[in-house]
Design a protein around this nucleic acid. Structure first.
Length: 538
RNA sequence: GGCGGCGUAGCUCAGUUGGUAAGAGCGCACGACUCAUAAUCGUGAGGUCGGCAGUUCGAGUCUGCCCGCCGCUACCA
């Protein structure tokens, strides 16, 4: 009874480089989760893509004197390099510029409009006449009407921390040009979140196993009362509005269309695989599950707004879980290469074995709370946990076998000690699997490493290097048992470290080929040279 | 201001619905081993669980207040 599992991953904004925090926050955990489910036989599609629209991209394009599309292409290409180097196993990694995406966005827009979940509303908006553009609240500055602070923003005064409307500011100016801001009426389409509040509340109440910070946050949004939100903007760069009622210069607002990308990327995947309807197995089949891997800043969009869009549209599956991560902090600051904190992601990717980097990040995933890491800590984990415990185990056993035993042919009977080692691993698959299914990936990795240690302990207790001198058959049995255990360790660690795990597995000849249970290792065959899995940092 | 999260051993973090003497990994100390990338294994020392008060037979776990850090507060996504 294999399940269909949709692994949806936050769409990275093609407006700048990503950093380690992004990788640990969403892409790596999603990949671990997806790889595990594929291995145990579930049908997984993992989708995402580069988010091509939105203000940061146009701002950056303006600053660099290029077109938005140039910025998008540059960073999309950079993101593709990340995924390749890190072995992120997408089924479809696309962009929000594809025809399929635009079609799907238009379909959802039109359907919500027909059903009355989208309607036009007029509002007064700050406007910069010299730049010929409307201004977000935060891009308007002026004097606070309450405390007379001179640099109050249109949304809030930093001095007295009162929430403001831009129109309240005295002498409002555009933060972009420094010129006086005007106020003009503008008309936009709004998503009527308020009329979906009850259904969303029921949906959230029915969720089980969500992380406390995610469900609490989502519910607090509902409890405060959902406010209708504009889904179009005064912009040239973006997806066109399917109905021509607002006049020129307006586009669909990025937050509305980006989340729809999960559906359009799934549909695109179907087309690419010559089965246009296969996406339905993940979106319409009620037994299918969907997991959305995002950072905590994305919780409102994935636990509130996207479910509302889906509820309004109807029929499509809502998120099974949104295992949002908190932030990875480097040296006490939110990981940010733009602020010059730490190395760029590309530098890490050049310097690190991808599996070692995956390990260092996976063992510090911010699943419950913000987690601090430093490069020293990552190096320490590589040297003292990965190299010493796992890499060295593989090395010591393969060396013992290759130097002393030709082909693991004549084995003595297994003792209770040997059997106990193997039966431990039968349980390991179960306990590690359960943790991954609950998206407790950090614990799952720690648990896996604990089993790696038991093999080292087994060797210390059985001392095959001594037994070799007197009883070669017994020594062969010990090493055969250890090799069986190592093969299982490689399976357990595969979702976390796919490349090195495959390297180990492919070197060990097997009689069976289970990916998620103990395998029988062939006797009478020579073990292939595995080589060092990881290198120590000096 | 309001809302949410966090504050647990030197460090990074776990601690289901309150219940046997508070956990893990790393670091540290001591011991064992020497096959292995000076790697491994075992034992141990470290905490009045941010503070104060309360509920309870019993609270890290619930309530109130306080202190500190972070985030959100709806046109950044």
């Amino acid at each position: 009874m294999s399940k269909n599992i949709l692994v949806s991953v936050a769409w990275p904004y093609a407006s700048g480089s990503r950093h380690l925090g992004h990788i640990g926050g969403a892409y790596l955990p999603a990949d671990i989760f997806a790889r595990y489910h594929r291995i145990i036989g579930n049908k997984v599609i993992m989708v995402s893509g580069s988010d091509a629209h939105g203000t940061p991209i146009t701002v950056r394009a303006d600053a660099e004197g290029v077109k938005p599309i140039d910025i998008v292409n540059k960073y999309h290409a950079e993101f593709l390099r990340y995924w390749e180097k890190l072995n992120i196993s997408w089924d479809n990694y696309t962009t929000t510029m594809t025809e399929t995406h635009i079609e799907v966005v238009h379909d959802i827009f039109n359907t919500l409009l027909e059903k009355g979940y989208i309607e036009k509303q007029k509002s007064i908006q700050a406007y910069d006449p010299s730049e010929n553009r409307f201004l977000p609240d935060r891009y308007v500055e002026g004097i606070c009407p309450y405390c007379e602070y001179k640099e109050a923003r249109g949304d809030q005064c930093d001095n007295c921390s009162k929430t403001l409307d831009p129109e309240e500011l005295i002498n409002p100016v555009s933060k972009i040009s420094g010129n006086k801001a005007e106020f003009k009426e503008t008309e936009h389409f709004f998503l009527k979140l308020s009329s979906l509040q009850k259904e969303l509340g029921d949906y959230l109440d029915s969720r089980e196993g969500w992380r406390p910070h995610v469900i609490n946050w989502a519910k607090s949004f509902v409890n405060e009362g959902l406010i209708d939100r504009a889904i179009t903007r005064d912009l040239d760069w973006g997806i066109t509005i399917p109905v021509d009622e607002l006049g020129p210069g307006k586009k669909i607002y990025v937050w509305f269309e980006a989340v729809i990308g999960y559906l359009s990327a799934s549909k695109e995947w179907s087309k690419l695989n010559d089965n246009e309807d296969s996406w339905k197995d993940w979106w319409l089949n009620k037994d299918a599950e969907s997991y959305y891997f995002v950072g905590k800043d994305n919780i409102p969009f994935h636990a509130v707004i996207w479910p509302c869009i889906l509820l309004g549209y109807g029929a499509l599956n809502l998120p099974t879980n949104v295992p949002a991560n908190q932030y990875i902090l480097i040296k006490g600051e939110k990981a940010s290469s733009s602020r010059g904190v730490g190395k760029t992601l590309e530098e890490y990717l050049d310097e690190w074995n991808p599996d070692a980097l995956r390990y260092a990040l996976a063992s510090s995933l911010p699943e419950q709370s913000d987690t601090e890491i430093s490069e020293d800590e990552m190096i320490r984990r590589n040297n003292e946990e990965l190299v010493a415990t796992w890499g060295n185990l593989v090395q010591r056993v393969s060396t013992l076998i290759n130097k002393n035993i030709d082909d693991l042919q004549s084995l003595s009977e297994a003792t209770s000690e040997d059997q106990e080692l193997i039966s431990q691993f039968e349980k390991a698959y179960e306990s590690v699997g359960k943790l991954i299914e609950k998206v407790e990936l950090k614990s799952a990795l720690q648990e896996s490493m604990r089993f790696v240690s038991t093999v080292n302990a087994y060797l210390n207790n059985t001392e095959p290097w001594k037994v070799l001198k007197s009883d070669k058959e017994r020594a062969s049995r010990i090493l055969y048992s250890a090799l069986t255990a190592i093969d299982s360790c490689a399976n357990l660690l595969y979702p976390f470290m796919p490349t090195t795990s495959l390297k180990v597995r492919n070197s060990i000849p097997r009689d069976s080929n289970f990916e998620w249970s103990v395998n029988k290792i062939k006797t009478g065959v020579k073990l292939e040279e595995i080589g060092l899995l990881f290198k120590k940092f000096d």
